[in-house]
Nucleic acid binder design. Structure first.
Lengths: 356, 356
DNA sequence: ACGCCAATTTAAAACGTTGTAAATTTGTGG
DNA sequence: CCACAAATTTACAACGTTTTAAATTGGCGT
């Protein structure tokens, strides 16, 4: 290629040398400590690893010197030798972009991993709807010691793949596989039940709820909770079929506006997310309905936003940072070999104020 | 320690072996390819690296075999040998938790790094306000080849540290150091100028703006843009001193509500964030003012949320995903040795719709 | 057939760590 | 003082890659 290109091409002057991080000259290694203490490298390694056959005396001395010169084991060498990566990978879903979902969980995760050697690497999902390719890549090439992801389906292909390969992971959300696995989930049944109940207690005649996409596991939970409360009270209800929680806010707003202009509209809304709650408020106020008197909303909030902006919305809190932290802890236990049966957490809806 | 503890402690049975990822037996390495082709390991390495002294013939053959068996170089070995980590680290600020700020940027970053060997690791900030400790840690221990972070101050200590060490980085936001560095920034001067201008054009008598915290660089830019428009038009204005963009939404809402009940309240609001806009809307509507007739808001939005929920708010868009992608590209160029003078981008405010 | 240069391939060492197996020191009883 | 075991330390190899320097091959003029 470029066969006919003119030959007189001027060589671009190397106007600046590549910006390599400095060769990190004199970065302390086991060898450094070995020379300083007069011990063998192996001994130093052992001492730092608190191996049993090292005398208390040298163990202490080695630790002292290590601390003094600021020794930190080389992750690459450790990983090469042991095969353990000291990496936890979190799969980022495009839907998590909204309202700090992903970021909250990551802060929680980071907190759980803070005092451990684990680093957190984020693997985004570009391709298809589910990020099963990314999971496959990570398993095949040993890119991490454990995996974290959310928005599970009842027979989530990512979970299947991980189970088949015995790869440690924790999901945010449950599945319906017969093989158990570690998860943290919010009790969306309880949320929906409680939300409907509160609307009923407030004296609402007809309640509705905006449900998550049907393919996600918690669609079932939420629907079930809502329906249970509705049936117990024997109250009127409706569930929009053309909308879900992932719908753009304007679609939700327009739907609410249109519906509330038709006969027999609902006057009680269960909104399992801040966006849907805000969209509902706007749609209703466009039709002249006022929140708190003519209709009510009970919403799930994952930040303080909603209740701070509009206190008339009654909110139930889901603490995503706590969820992230729990997921991190479970994953560490899982990697450590604890039986998965014990590694499941169902977060209770929080009815009071969150503790940041 | 535990000197007096009872001896009869029952040894906890090893109820399950540690869940190690399988030894990844038979994972292809250079050696595998060498044996398959009958070449030496060195030759294979060269061929894959497209070294000049390898004959076209073997180069092709090696690439074929590598692709066939799905060879992927071992990151740990490469890192150990070359000192390059193939890692980009992004500093996560607690303030970015709101409204997908961090997540958008990360998606953009991830897209920029997609076809490269770089992985994205997130380093959260736990300790003090600025994450200079994390920066120091990363530099000292060579944990990454490059760094990304946001919310710069005029003389940001993180930037100073990185400049002193010649460590590659790209900021979101400018500084006032005399030494130049790579950055991507939004033209907040233009935003504030344009926002104020639009409010004036709409016939508003008195405009106001909620500014970022004073210590951040873009406080200056925004204030300057706002003031320029105000002075050009010779219009009344005020700037709240007890509030900033990081203030909790309820504080902003209460301030707006209180101020609008006092004499001579502003009727034009420039809100450089979705949260402040929503809080303003609520505060005003609490006092019975209606948006679009009695007062106006021009807001910066970084998601589609605001305009979808409340079209009466006029919005100016900041594309954070694009910013992230640009930062990734600049960082790659910086690591590749390009002069920093060329690595600066000022994003124009987008007045139309964003292209997702 | 020889020497020599260029083109191409190769062996060996190194990065920093850990596992295996062997070596050294220490302590004890005879 | 010796044998012997226990306690403690050590040398060496290996993980998979890149780099340095050396070896092999082929071509070509003499």
């Amino acid at each position: 290629m470029q066969r006919n290109a003119p030959v007189s091409r001027i060589e671009k002057p190397a106007d600046s040398e590549p910006a390599r991080s400095p060769p990190r000259a004199g970065k302390p290694t086991l060898k450094t400590i070995a020379e300083l203490t007069g011990l063998a490298i192996t001994t130093v390694s052992r001492a730092l690893g608190n191996a049993p056959q090292i005398s208390e005396n040298t163990r202490r001395r080695v630790h002292e010197v290590a601390a003094e010169i600021g020794y930190l084991p080389d992750r690459a060498a450790q990983r090469l030798k042991t095969g353990r990566t000291n990496v936890i990978s979190v799969l980022l879903d495009p839907h998590e972009e909204i309202l700090g979902f992903g970021t909250s969980i990551m802060h929680g995760l980071a907190r759980a991993l803070q005092a451990t050697p684990y680093h957190l690497i984020v693997t985004p999902n570009f391709l298809d709807g589910s990020n099963v390719d990314a999971v496959n890549y990570i398993i095949r090439n040993g890119m991490a010691d454990g995996l974290i992801f959310s928005r599970t389906e009842p027979f989530d292909p990512r979970v299947r793949l991980l189970l088949e390969n015995g790869f440690p992971f924790v999901t945010h959300g449950r599945t319906e596989f017969s093989t158990p696995h570690a998860f943290v989930d919010y009790d969306n049944y309880a949320f929906a039940y409680e939300a409907a109940k509160r609307l009923i207690v407030k004296g609402r005649r007809k309640v509705t709820i905006i449900l998550p996409p049907k393919r996600l596991t918690f669609y079932q939970h939420m629907r079930h909770g809502f329906m249970t409360a509705v049936r117990e009270a024997g109250i009127a209800y409706e569930i929009p079929e053309t909308l879900d929680l992932d719908s753009p806010a304007d679609l939700i707003r327009d739907y609410v506006r249109r519906r509330s202009a038709e006969p027999d509209p609902p006057d009680g809304f269960a909104c399992p997310g801040e966006v849907s709650a805000l969209a509902t408020i706007t749609g209703m106020s466009d039709q002249g309905f006022t929140l708190g008197t003519e209709y009510d909303i009970v919403a799930k909030q994952t930040s303080l936003l909603l209740s701070q902006i509009q206190p008339k919305v009654e909110t139930i809190y889901e603490d995503l940072k706590a969820a992230g932290e729990a997921m991190g802890q479970l994953l560490l236990q899982r990697i450590g070999g604890e039986p998965v049966e014990d590694l499941t957490i169902l977060q209770d809806p929080q009815f009071g104020f969150p503790t940041p």
